[in-house]
């Protein structure tokens, strides 16, 4: 494992911990898109089915279990927790995320490495992860005034994507047979979605001001 991959995994983990911390400490999920969280839960469950069939390392297994567990816990909190669920911005979180699920599944049926149950679900999870942030970005933009922890959450998620791209470039250059075309193209799309957010993030950081997204 190279340093970029590790940094990517850690920023991914931090983003989820920041989100859990926000929900736990403030007993509020305002500014967080339940749609995006549901999509991530689907992504992790679909991709990590290989927990039952393949063993790669203790690190991989533990991280997969943590990601599945945390994403399900977040969805549970936002939907069912007595206090937290009342803070959910239901009216602005209106993205039709079922269309994303359907579109990604159809794409995975046609574009995959092998036509097996696990490979199609793997491709599906890669495509869905690429677009899963969209409801969250739309919610950020609509609500305009966003709290700091939510901004940090999106920032760390974006950082994870950026590190993974560096990781793929590194692996492509150092491993003779490394080819991950489906994931690399989807990863580029996903990272590009964050470009706008990062632009405004750095502007607010430079001016030492609160993040403001244009309406």
């Amino acid at each position: 494992m190279n340093i970029f991959r590790f940094a990517g995994d850690m920023t991914h983990l931090i983003s989820i911990l920041v989100l859990l911390l926000k929900i736990y400490a403030t007993k509020s999920c305002s500014g967080i898109s339940l749609k995006t969280q549901e999509l991530y839960a689907i992504v992790f469950v679909a991709r990590y089915l290989d927990l039952f069939t393949d063993f790669i390392s203790v690190y991989n297994t533990v991280m997969k279990l943590v990601f599945i567990g945390c994403s399900l816990a977040i969805v549970w909190c936002m939907r069912l927790h007595r206090v937290v669920r009342r803070t959910y911005n239901k009216d602005v979180d209106t993205f039709r995320h079922y269309f994303l699920v359907l579109g990604c599944f159809l794409l995975a049926l046609f574009v995959h490495e092998k036509f097996t149950f696990q490979e199609v679900l793997w491709a599906f999870s890669i495509y869905l992860e690429a677009v899963a942030i969209l409801p969250q970005l739309v919610l950020l933009q609509r609500s305009g005034n966003v709290d700091n922890l939510t901004v940090q959450y999106v920032f760390f998620l974006g950082a994870y994507r950026a590190f993974y791209i560096l990781n793929w470039i590194y692996r492509y250059l150092t491993e003779p047979h490394f080819g991950r075309w489906i994931a690399s193209v989807a990863g580029l799309v996903q990272t590009a979605l964050y470009a706008d957010f990062f632009y405004y993030y750095f502007i607010s950081w430079k001016n030492n001001a609160k993040l403001q997204l244009p309406a």
Binding site: D9, M63, K64, H177, R180, A183
Partner: peptide
């Protein structure tokens, strides 16, 4: 295999 196709990643 798993490593060549990047499925050793998360």
């Amino acid at each position: 295999d798993k490593q060549d196709s990047g499925k050793d990643e998360l």
